[in-house]
């Protein structure tokens, strides 16, 4: 502190230092209160969530054991036969996996169309009637706030078991999620083309089609591709409630301790998700590239 350019005992300096210390103390108290509140919330949550560190410590060894037990026995000498044995059900799993991707695809496409239909009405700058905007927003919110698995549970009762209700569940959830994102994109557009369309006598639909869509389409597609990847992951577990895809077989493999099957199916899911992740990312970058060039 000897390097302070002002004499430390000067009244002005002392006032400055006091103010600084007071400020620091206030900040420290705020941080402490925040930390204490977080800690209290955690303790309460731990009590409600039946966290039992004793059981955890006692049973934690089961976790690596489980990972080891689902790992297949592969030996170099008999690699071919081992892999064949590991993937004994590859035909069935492959078909289910294709189903899973198709569920995600059809659900995403329907959700895209649904989001597209609702997003213009949900944008405050494009729709004049306030109640319409609020209504569309509430509708999107309900579609997005209920998890897709809950929709799937209900649709399975209504439409019967199988991939079709799963696809509908994904479509509804995707409509809500994409509609909101699309509406946010819409609210940031340049409004001059819209005014131009109206001035030359266009209807609302024509204005949306020719003044809004060209500005936002690449954003829409980019969000939809992101959503597709999320939906593939979501479709992989729809089978847990009987709504099609590979989840059914994964659930029964885990529940009935067909351990190598668990790792075989998990690996298939992870690879599929990774491939789709990389492919959609490529596509999105290509789209962004197109956008900046024109």
């Amino acid at each position: 502190m000897a390097t302070l350019p002002l004499p430390t005992d000067a009244p002005a300096t002392r006032r400055l230092l006091d103010a600084y210390r007071a400020e620091q103390a206030a900040k420290r108290i705020r941080t402490l209160i925040f930390a204490a509140a977080t800690l209290a919330a955690c303790l309460l949550a731990a009590w409600m969530g039946e966290v039992d560190l004793g059981t955890f410590a006692e049973n934690f060894h089961k976790f690596p054991n489980y990972i080891l037990s689902i790992t297949p026995q592969l030996r170099w000498a008999t690699l071919g036969e081992d892999v064949t044995e590991w993937y004994w059900g590859w035909k069935r799993w492959g078909r289910l996996l294709i189903d899973t991707v198709l569920i995600a695809y059809a659900g995403t496409l329907l959700g895209f169309v649904g989001g597209l239909m609702l997003c213009f009405t949900a944008s405050a700058n494009l729709t004049a009637r306030r109640w319409l905007v609020l209504g569309a927003r509430r509708l999107l919110e309900i579609q997005r706030s209920v998890p897709e698995l809950v929709y799937a549970l209900i649709f399975v009762v209504a439409f019967g078991l199988g991939p079709f209700p799963g696809m509908l569940a994904i479509a509804i959830h995707t409509t809500g999620a994409l509609g909101k994102l699309f509406a946010e994109v819409n609210e940031n557009i340049d409004l001059k083309p819209v005014d131009g369309m109206y001035a030359s006598g266009a209807s609302w639909f024509q204005a949306m089609r020719f003044a809004v869509v060209p500005q936002v389409l690449s954003n829409y597609v980019s969000y939809t591709l992101l959503r597709f990847e999320i939906n593939v992951r979501g479709a992989a577990v729809l089978g847990f409630v009987g709504a099609g895809g590979i989840g059914q077989d994964l659930l029964s493999a885990i529940r009935q301790f067909y351990l190598p099957d668990v790792s075989a199916i998990l690996l298939m899911i992870v690879v599929t998700v990774a491939v789709i992740d990389i492919a959609t990312e490529r596509l999105r970058h290509a789209l962004i590239g197109l956008d900046t060039r024109t």
């Binding site: 039946e50 966290v51 039992d52 059981t55 955890f56 049973n59 934690f60 089961k62 489980y66 885990i254």
Partner: peptide
Amino acid sequence: NVVGLGPF
């Protein structure tokens, strides 16, 4: 499979 059924 590790900690049993429940919120934990």
